[in-house]
Nucleic acid binder design. Structure first.
Lengths: 145, 145
DNA sequence: ATAATTGCAAAGCGTTTGCACCCTG
DNA sequence: CAGGGTGCAAACGCTTTGCAATTAT
């Protein structure tokens, strides 16, 4: 097992409960996600692994992502219709800037709209459980290009 | 052609450009959407029409919604993964409260987070083009039940 | 008339699942 | 050795498309 995989393994063990095994395939998925500057779909992750010569089944990638999502190790974003994108996220409530050109995703630290959400909901008798914000635009790099 | 369809037809003609025909099927889709308190998927709209005895093909519903979306007559929401929801929306920038239990969607008038979005983006050299907010929770009715 | 639109069924696509084999603990 | 995990292929659910028949202008 490589050094990179060891570091992912540490992340894995820290975040997952018992009964879930840190298998080679899951570590590879986690490793790929960690190396990804943008977000990635299950199929993209699978393709990256095949390019690297790793033989991991597509279904396994999907199953790995499902486990990681359940344990909140990765975020599932829905900005491409019809397919889900995954991203290794920092813990805690936060939102994203998504570049419409290169699909780079950047995290915004902190959420300043909780009060607005709470107030606005109140006027509708609505009880907010969670909210998502997605800012779409151009990242610094794509803006320059 | 019924009276209800006549009123939808007015909406249709006001909103659509030339070369697009206000056919019976498209009017029916628009009419269904207008009568829908919640948002609806293409399949749900199709089912409603069949229940009413209207013989409209599923593909036609999809095609009608595609046209309506292009002309910005309806909004496409992505809160159910794997399928799209459609809703007749008021014009202008606004956000939604989505009930996780009954899928009712309520519009919030006005958007109070533009300044936050602009500020937060600036610190990342990001150029925001648009943003979406989706507040998920329980509506007043479901909260009481 | 003629160009857009419909309906049906088939094809596409991303995702999930059944099941036999494999591996981790 | 027992129970989770994997791979493959088949199954799925939503959406799109090809094409001949139909309809609006």
């Amino acid at each position: 097992m490589s050094r990179a995989q060891d570091s992912e393994r540490a992340l894995f063990e820290r975040l997952l409960g018992t009964g879930v095994r840190p298998t080679k395939q899951r570590l590879l998925v986690l490793e790929t996600l960690a190396a990804e500057p943008h977000d990635a779909t299950a199929q993209e992750i699978h393709a990256r692994l095949r390019e690297r010569g790793e033989k991991v089944g597509l279904a396994t990638v999907y199953r790995a992502l499902a486990v990681l999502r359940e344990r909140e190790v990765v975020d599932e974003l829905a900005h491409r219709t019809g397919e889900s994108c995954y991203r290794l996220c920092s813990p805690g409530h936060h939102h994203h800037l998504v570049c419409s050109r290169c699909h780079r995703v950047e995290e915004l630290e902190g959420c300043q709209i909780d009060t607005w959400v709470t107030e606005a909901s109140k006027t509708h008798g609505f009880h907010p459980a969670s909210h998502t914000v997605e800012v779409v635009g151009l990242c610094a790099e794509c803006l320059a290009a």
